[in-house]
Amino acid sequence: MTPDNHRTSFPPDGRSAFPLRGAVALVTGANRGIGRAFTRELLDRGAAKAYAGARDPSTVQEPGVLPVRLDVTDPEQVAAAADRCGDVDLLVNNAGIFHAGPLLGAPSVQDAREEMETNLFGTLAMIRAFAPILGRNDGGAVIVALSALSFINYAPWGTYSASKAAAWSMTNSVRDELADQGTLVTAVHSGLVDTDMTQALELPKISPEVYVDAALDAVAAGEIEALADEHTHTYRAMLAYHPHRPPWD
């Protein structure tokens, strides 16, 4: 059971809930961990179709999903996915990388560049490619898988923190840009999730299923933000609440 989330409906006058039953979803990074859990749960909740994006489609093993070759840092593959998946009305941006390195103590800025390329620019490339498709499909919805490190810093993982903070800011901006076409954009934050990416870390973790449930519950309710664990809920509450639009708008 997930904790009570910090949740805000979109837009301020109350968007109707996004119906997961009958949805057509594309999940990036869907061959394992959180991404695979997203495809499984979407089908369990009645989605009509789940495309599973992965750099190597042969690694997609979840029954009932449709593998798609997709490296979010490759513009040609992003464009090809958009051409193939023109019926998508739910885009789940899950693909990401985690080098667990500091900003100054690393031997170079290469890790920081790679994390920004995937976690920020890859996610942005997917939203840019699919925004017109979502618009044609009654607005639809976008999920962006973020982190508690979107809004708190941990110096040993400074490069990842920076990439997720940038991705959170981008998410809040594209939400405003897509509001006029009725696209719901939901940011999902949590602490560590028990996946291959974090297996070497002896720290508290939640399961991929808990993360996915928090994300899909929020989207189904038309909410712009979901916090998947208690630690993240506490950290988020320490921040000043950001309005959907700035006070001068």
Rank of each mutant, 00 (worst) to 15 (best):
M116W: 13
E117C: 00
T118F: 13
T118R: 10
T118S: 10
N119G: 02
N119F: 05
F121D: 00
G122F: 14
T123L: 15
A125S: 15
M126F: 11
I127T: 08
A129G: 13
A129N: 13
F130M: 03
P132C: 04
I133M: 11
I133S: 11
I133A: 09
R136F: 07
N137Y: 06
D138R: 14
D138T: 01
G139D: 14
A141M: 03
V142F: 12
V142C: 09
I143N: 10
I143H: 13
I143T: 07
V144T: 15
L146I: 02
L146Q: 11
L146M: 07
A148M: 13
L149M: 10
L149Q: 12
S150H: 11
F151P: 06
F151H: 12
N153P: 00
N153H: 09
N153C: 00
Y154M: 04
Y154S: 03
Y154C: 00
Y154W: 14
Y154P: 04
A155N: 03
P156K: 03
G158N: 07
T159F: 12
T159V: 10
Y160A: 00
S161F: 01
S161C: 15
S163A: 02
S163P: 02
S163N: 01
K164C: 06
A165W: 03
A166M: 09
W168C: 07
S169Q: 12
N172M: 10
N172E: 15
